[in-house]
């Protein structure tokens, strides 16, 4: 049975000399499975501990990444597979990181709106509302509460659904 796949491609992992390529021992699978179950419990448990805005996220992502690596390396045989397949897989993650990272370099550093709004309490808190500032002068009394409620415009506004975009 010298023509088995992968035997000359994957030198290691199939030490038993059998023609079947790198059949992993059963205990590897059961071990992986237990690890995954254990980590699931850990991640659920960790979510009950309040670690702050980023803390919980980082812990959850860390555990998820360990789980994902285990699945990829063992269940998906990436550890014994061609290096090129690992490169393919990692490059996907790399490009995803580029995508998310650079997009966030925009969305995280835009945020000029609030500053302007605070400085410029014209009655235009809600650009979608039909009314606009009066011709004569901006009534100062009307402008002040609008500025106060400006942190979350849609939540505070009376009826966001009543003025949908034109269709």
């Amino acid at each position: 049975m010298s023509t088995s796949h992968a035997e000359h491609d994957h030198g290691h992992g199939s030490g038993n000399g059998d023609h079947v390529p790198h059949v992993l021992p059963f205990k590897v699978y059961i071990g992986t499975f237990s690890t995954l179950l254990f980590l699931t419990v850990v991640t659920v448990g960790a979510s009950y501990v309040d670690l702050g805005h980023m803390g919980n996220l980082i812990v959850a992502l860390l555990i998820a990444t360990i789980k994902a690596s285990v699945v990829a390396l063992i269940f998906m045989h990436l550890k014994w597979d061609h290096k090129f397949h690992a490169i393919i897989f990692v490059s996907a993650l790399l490009f995803l990181a580029v995508f998310i990272g650079i997009t966030m370099s925009d969305t995280q550093f835009r945020g000029e709106a609030e500053a302007i709004e605070a400085k410029n309490p014209v009655d235009l808190k809600d650009p979608f509302k039909a009314e606009r500032a009066g011709d004569v002068a901006v009534p100062k009394a009307a402008a002040a509460p609008a500025a106060a409620g400006s942190a979350a415009p849609a939540a505070g506004s009376a009826a966001p659904a009543a003025t949908p975009a034109k269709h």
Partner: peptide
């Protein structure tokens, strides 16, 4: 594996 913690937890 990613969806569960991100959305639920």
């Amino acid at each position: 594996i990613y969806l569960f913690p991100l959305l639920y937890l």
